[in-house]
Amino acid sequence: MRSAGTSLSRALILLLARFLTAVRARWDGAPPTTEQRIYYANHASHGDFVLVLAVLPRRPRSAARPVAGSDYWLKSGVRRFIGRDVFNAVLIDRDRVSRTNDPIAQMTDALDAGFSLIVFPEGTRNSTEAPILPFKSGLFHLAKARPSIGLVPVWIDNLNRVMPKGEFVPIPLICTVTFGTALHIAATEAKREFLARTEAALLALSPKASPP
């Protein structure tokens, strides 16, 4: 159950995101669906999942949970409130050595409860000149664990300029979120092939890949 406070905060944050970015969705692969999905997106800013939620239609939006690093989102009271309470994020521990929870198990639990997920397979925010960082293996293990759920590549364009890593005042700039065609892991597909294929599907959505 959500309280009025978290619902209001959620609505306000989504409204602010729209005000700053006039964000628009492009459905390149298929029209939006209420089917369960794993949305995997490029990662440049803490606001990335907010933008994806802002453009999803109402039903798929209320069924989607972002997956985010607990080291960042549990650090202070405000972050804990926004990450855990307002957006109901699946908070995973990114530290392989010290963690006690298995991130894949946390994600499959959420999937089994009927939620869609928004994941960032690069594992960290990309502040390099390269369009994306090499994917971590998490996406592969997740796909392997629930192979029937479609993986939808999602390219978030321009948000890295709105709020680059290390800045805290956002600059209003127009952003687009492009959704590609859902793909599935093949029964015999090896990790390296699968990651290369998912990376390529995501990169193909970036405007630099296909000039207008």
Partner: peptide
């Protein structure tokens, strides 16, 4: 809204962040 559209199409870089924040 116009400034948001205009700046979206410029070459601004991270180093312009504060100048742009001032502008907006």
């Amino acid at each position: 809204a116009a400034l948001r559209e205009f700046i979206t199409l410029t070459n601004t870089r991270r180093a312009d962040h504060w100048a742009l924040a001032l502008g907006f």
